[in-house]
């Protein structure tokens, strides 16, 4: 299933998304301040940082769940003051959540199909009929959804309401729903949170296979450093809402500021 060639899809290595001067405030708390970085097409970019560094806030700004008070977001060459979740989805951004946000009463297949809802355009009257263009469209998209389902090896639970599934599988269904949208940019908020070693390895494999097979650009938040080092091409490190490092895994690993942030060394500004 090759991704649709979309207008304005950047070539590999070109900027997919960049943010500049992003600031976000919750009352008196400065969650993000002056954050800027670029995610390049085709790469896996990890956003890391200690607890409370503003990683999830950053992801929420990227897809419009939060509106930043300052700064700009440039996605596929178009610069905006803020995103809107629906606009982000329409322009080819999909995401998963730290605490799985699935449609619990619906089957795996219906959840994955919901990920394709915005690609479906049958009108209301056609949808009232059991035959005709609406059913043809439905069948076409179901075939695609089934491809994603078999890609992520969740055929066994295709018709099971996702509320009954164990956590690890729910995480995978959520990834399936995001992939079903054939996104250009996929935001993964702690895709391996709460997983055991085996499940983490499996999820890492799916993430790498997604990159290899669909060339999807990904931004992910993850706490497990071994996973981050293994998966990512590019790492952005946040601490107290500011970017403290940005580079290849090798560069970030040896960066003194990063080491200090993680180990909690007092810097002179704190004094």
């Amino acid at each position: 299933m090759p991704a649709d060639p979309k207008n304005g899809h950047p070539a590999p290595g070109e900027p997919m998304l960049s943010v500049e001067g992003i600031a976000l405030r919750f009352g008196g708390v400065q969650a993000l301040a002056g954050v800027e970085f670029t995610i390049y097409a085709g790469e896996i970019c990890a956003i890391i940082g200690p607890n409370g560094a503003g990683k999830t806030s950053m992801l929420n700004v990227l897809n419009g769940a939060y509106q930043p008070s300052e700064g700009t977001i440039t996605f596929k060459g178009r610069t905006r003051r803020k995103m809107h979740p629906r606009v982000a989805a329409l322009e080819g951004m999909a995401r998963t959540f730290q605490n799985v946000a699935l449609f619990k009463g619906m089957s795996t297949l219906d959840n994955v199909m919901a990920g394709r809802n915005l690609k479906m355009h049958s009108n209301f009257v056609a949808c009232l009929l059991p035959v005709g263009p609406s059913r043809a469209e439905e069948a076409r998209h179901r075939a695609h959804a089934d491809e994603v389902i078999s890609f992520l090896e969740i055929e066994d639970i295709r018709n099971v309401p996702v509320g009954r599934l164990p956590y690890g599988l729910q995480k995978r269904v959520e990834l399936a729903r995001a992939l079903a949208a054939e996104p250009d940019l996929l935001l993964l908020d702690e895709p391996m949170a709460g997983m055991n070693r085996g499940e983490k390895a499996e999820m890492s494999r799916f993430i790498l296979e997604t990159k290899a097979r669909f060339g999807t650009t990904m931004a992910l938040i993850e706490h497990d450093m071994s996973v981050v080092m293994e998966l990512s091409d590019h790492i952005v490190v946040l601490d107290y809402g500011r970017k403290i490092a940005d580079g290849t895994p090798e560069e970030v690993r040896t960066d003194q500021t990063v080491i200090d942030a993680y180990l909690g060394v007092a810097t002179e500004d704190d004094a």
């Binding site: 699935l102 619990k104 219906d110 990920g115 439905e138």
Partner: peptide, 20 residues
């Protein structure tokens, strides 16, 4: 697609908005 959109809104409206 309409039925699925309704059920998605029922089950989790935040996620429904994120999928567009």
């Amino acid at each position: 697609r309409f039925g699925r959109a309704w059920m998605a809104v029922r089950d989790m409206d935040v996620a429904a908005e994120i999928v567009g």
